[in-house]
Design a protein around this nucleic acid. Structure first.
Length: 647
DNA sequence: ACGGGCTGTCTTTTT
DNA sequence: GACAGCCCGT
C-alpha cells in the first residue's frame, strides 16, 4: 500500500507539501507523529531525498529513537541507516564535535549536565566569596540558563534588575562561570545550541554547507521550542525555507523551561508564505472526553483556534470522586482501580494516574501497595542522576579524556583514597595558575616537591590505575572497562553494608548500568567509548518500558505524548491545580489550563477526577476548594462517584 | 569520616 | 510534616 493511502486528507496534504514553509496545527490525538514519520518516509521514498539530508527535531531522545524506528521500518531500511532524527541538543553536539574549532572551542569539549553545572556554580560562588544565602545557586542556575536560552547579552539585562548591587555581583559571577566552563573545555546544555547558532552566524561557509546539507527540516512539538532553538531553525532553512513545524498551542506546558509559545503563534510572521494545515480529527478519545477537554481549553486566549471532532461514540461520562481528605481520596481512587481491574477486567497497564506535583505520588503508592496492586512511577528519579551512576560514568569520562577536570574532581576521592579536600585544593590551585588541567597538576605533583610524600604516593597509585584503564580501553569495549574500574576501585565494597536496603538498590543500579552499556553495544556494535559517553550525556533514562501489567503513576508533564484507556486526574484542588505558586510567580493560568487539558486528552475511554476537602499543606490541615477547572468542564458530563454506585 | 541537631524549603523537569 | 543541606562536634 502506498504511504499516502494510510492518511486522512489533511494529513496527506501535510505530507505532500514539501517545497515551502508548512505549519501543521495538530490537536491532541490527531496523528501528529504519524504525519512526521510518513513525511520523512515520503521524502525519502517518493522524492529520493537522501536520509541524512533530512533533519527532524524531536523533544526527547526517546521520541527520536521511536521515530527513527518507525521510519526505517516503514521503508524497510536497517535501523542504523544514517539519519538526522534527533533532539536539537544531540544534533548540535554532533556537529560541534566536528566544527567547534572554527569558533575557538576544542573539538574535545565535555558536556556539562545540569548537576555538573550546579556543582560548578557552587564552586564559582565559593571562589568569588559570594554567600549562597545572598545568591542561592539554584536561582543563579536558572538565571544563567534563561539568559543563554534567550541569547541575551548579560550586561544589558543589568538595568532591568531591581537590585543593582545584586545585579552587578551576578554579572561578575556569570562571566566567571562562563570562563571556568571554557577553561575546562566544557559546554553546558544551553551552550550546545547557542554555540551552534554562533557558528552558523559567524562562519558563512559553514552556514551555507549546512543549509545545503539539510534540504528539509521538520520540527515536532514546536510549541515547546525556545528562542535559541528557533533561531537555529531559521538559520538552517533560510534560503530554501523547506521547513515543517508541527505543534499544538494547547499542549504547551514548558514555558518555565524557556519554551516560547509565540514561536508557534507568530510563525506565520516569519514565514509569510506559510501553508497552514489543521489536524482536527481526533482518533483517541470518546466524544464525551473530547467535548470536556474542548470546552475547558476554549477558555484560553492564547490560541490559533481549532475544534477537535471525532466519529466515536459519546462513551461514558467523567466521574468525580470527592473525598474527605487526601488519604481518603487515595483510598477511593485505588478502590476504583481494584474494581476496574478485577470486575471490568481492565489490564493495569491501561490505567494511569496523573498528578500536578510529584509529592502526591506517595499517597497513592501507599494505597496501591496496601491493595497489592503493582505500579511504577514514571520518570521519578532520573537514572543517570543517581550518585553511584554519575560516579562510574565520570570514571569512564576520565578514562576517555583525563583532562576532563570536572569529572576527575568528582571521582578523585570516591572511593576515598587519601586525596582529600586539602590536596585537591592545592592541585586545583596549581592547575589554575598554570592554565592547565587537574590531571596535569597531578602528573607534575609527582616531580615537584610541593606535596608530602605520602600524598604523592597516593596520587601515583591513582594515576597508575587510570593508565591501566586507558590501555584497557584501547582494545576492550566500554562494558569491560567499566567492570574493571568497579573491581579495581572496590567501589561496591565502599558502598557499605550489603544488607542495607539503600546499598542493595545502589548495587542494582550498577548492574542496571552494566546492562545498559551492553545493550547500547548491541545496538551500536562499532561504538567507541567516546560515542557511548556522548549518548549518555544527552539522555536521561534507561529504557524502562518493559511490558509489565502495572498501573502507571506520573506527573502530567511526564504524560505528554502518552495515552491510556483509563486516566485518573487526582489532587484537583485550588492550591495544587492550578498551582498557587505558579499563579503567584507568573500569573499564567492559561498554561495551567493547558496542563489540565493535556491530562484529559491522554484518555481513550474513561476519566476519573478526584479531590479532597481537607489536605495537609506544609504539614497543616487545610480546608481547600475544588479546582476552578472542575467548574469549567461541562457539568452535564460529570457524574459523581456516589451517583454511579446508586444509579 | 561520621552523626546529631538545626534551618529553610516545600512544582513541573527534555536536554 | 518531611527532608535536604548545613554546621559543628567527635
Amino acid at each position: 500500500m502506498s504511504l499516502l493511502e494510510q492518511l486522512n486528507p489533511q494529513q496527506r496534504e501535510a505530507v505532500e507539501y514539501c517545497d515551502g514553509p508548512l505549519l501543521v496545527i495538530a490537536g491532541a490525538g490527531s496523528g501528529k507523529t504519524r504525519v512526521i514519520t510518513y513525511k520523512i518516509a515520503y521524502l525519502i521514498r517518493e522524492l529520493n531525498i537522501a536520509p541524512r539530508r533530512i533533519f527532524a527535531a524531536t523533544f526527547t531522545n526517546k521520541a527520536a529513537g521511536e521515530m527513527k524506528r518507525r521510519v526505517t521500518s516503514l521503508l524497510g531500511l536497517p535501523y542504523d541507516t544514517p539519519m538526522n532524527i534527533a533532539t536539537f541538543h544531540s544534533l548540535s553536539a554532533r556537529i560541534l564535535r566536528r566544527e567547534a574549532k572554527k569558533i575557538g572551542i576544542s573539538n574535545n569539549f565535555v558536556i556539562c549536565d545540569e548537576k555538573d553545572q550546579f556543582a560548578l556554580i557552587k564552586a564559582c560562588l565559593k571562589e568569588l566569596n559570594i554567600s549562597e544565602k545572598f545568591m542561592p545557586p539554584a536561582h543563579v542556575q536558572q538565571l544563567i540558563n534563561q539568559i543563554k536560552m534567550r541569547m541575551l547579552n548579560p550586561d544589558e539585562i543589568l538595568d532591568k534588575r531591581t537590585h543593582p548591587k545584586r545585579g552587578r555581583i551576578f554579572l561578575q559571577l556569570y562571566h566567571y562561570y562562563h570562563r571556568r566552563l571554557r577553561d575546562n573545555d566544557a559546554l553546558d546544555f544551553e551552550d550546545l545550541i547557542t554555540e551552534f547558532v554562533r557558528l552558523l552566524r559567524e562562519d558563512e561557509n559553514t552556514r551555507i554547507y549546512y543549509q545545503q546539507l539539510f534540504s528539509h527540516v521538520l520540527v515536532d512539538e514546536f510549541q515547546d521550542t525556545n528562542y535559541s532553538q528557533y533561531e537555529l531553525i531559521k538559520l538552517l532553512v533560510s534560503g530554501h525555507n523547506r521547513v515543517t513545524v508541527v505543534g499544538d498551542e494547547d499542549q504547551s506546558i514548558y514555558s518555565w523551561r524557556g519554551a516560547e509559545l509565540d514561536n508557534l503563534l507568530h510563525f506565520a510572521d516569519d514565514f509569510p508564505d506559510v501553508k497552514i494545515v489543521k489536524l482536527e480529527q481526533n482518533y483517541r478519545s470518546t466524544a464525551n472526553i473530547l467535548q470536556a477537554a474542548s470546552t475547558l481549553i476554549a477558555n484560553n486566549t492564547q490560541r490559533l483556534g481549532k475544534w477537535l471532532w471525532t466519529d466515536k461514540h459519546p462513551g461514558e461520562p467523567l466521574y468525580l470522586i470527592q473525598a474527605a481528605d487526601e488519604v481518603d481520596e487515595a483510598k477511593r481512587v485505588v478502590k476504583q482501580i481494584v474494581r476496574l481491574h478485577f470486575q471490568d477486567r481492565i489490564p493495569l497497564k491501561d490505567i494511569a494516574l496523573f498528578f500536578r506535583q510529584s509529592s502526591l505520588s506517595r499517597l497513592f503508592e501507599d494505597q496501591l501497595r496496601q491493595e497489592g496492586l503493582p505500579y511504577r512511577v514514571v520518570g521519578a528519579i532520573r537514572f543517570y542522576d543517581r550518585a553511584e551512576i554519575k560516579d562510574l560514568i565520570s570514571y569512564l569520562r576520565v578514562v576517555a579524556n583525563p583532562h576532563n577536570t570536572l569529572s576527575l574532581q568528582r571521582i578523585i576521592n570516591r572511593p576515598t583514597r587519601g586525596i582529600g579536600e586539602k590536596t585537591l585544593n592545592k592541585l586545583m590551585q596549581w592547575a589554575t595558575e598554570h592554565h592547565t588541567s587537574l590531571y596535569e597538576a597531578m602528573v607534575s605533583a609527582l616531580d615537584n616537591q610541593l606535596l608530602p610524600e605520602r600524598t604523592i604516593n597516593k596520587i601515583s597509585d591513582f594515576l597508575a590505575l587510570l593508565h591501566r584503564w586507558q590501555r584497557l580501553a584501547e582494545h576492550k569495549k566500554p562494558d569491560k572497562v567499566l567492570e574493571q574500574i568497579i573491581e579495581d576501585t572496590g567501589y561496591i565494597e565502599w558502598l557499605g553494608d550489603k544488607t542495607k536496603l539503600e546499598v542493595i538498590s545502589k548495587i542494582e543500579n550498577i548492574d542496571e548500568l552494566i546492562f545498559a552499556v551492553e545493550e547500547f553495544l548491541q545496538e551500536h556494535p562499532q561504538a567507541t567509548l567516546d560515542e557511548y559517553l556522548e549518548a549518555v550525556s544527552l539522555s536521561t533514562y534507561v529504557d524502562e518500558m518493559r511490558d509489565e501489567d502495572v498501573v502507571s503513576l506520573m506527573t502530567i508533564h511526564c504524560a505528554k505524548g502518552l495515552e491510556f484507556r483509563v486516566v485518573f486526574l487526582v489532587g484537583l484542588d485550588e492550591p495544587i491545580f492550578p498551582s498557587h505558586r505558579t499563579l503567584e510567580e507568573t500569573g499564567d493560568i492559561e498554561e495551567e489550563r493547558r496542563l489540565f487539558y493535556v491530562g484529559l486528552t491522554r484518555s481513550k475511554e474513561l476519566i476519573f477526577l478526584s479531590r479532597a476537602n481537607i489536605r495537609r499543606i506544609f504539614g497543616r490541615k487545610t480546608l481547600v476548594l475544588p479546582s476552578r477547572f472542575l467548574k469549567e468542564l461541562p457539568q452535564e458530563l460529570i457524574v459523581s462517584y456516589m451517583d454511579r454506585i446508586f444509579a
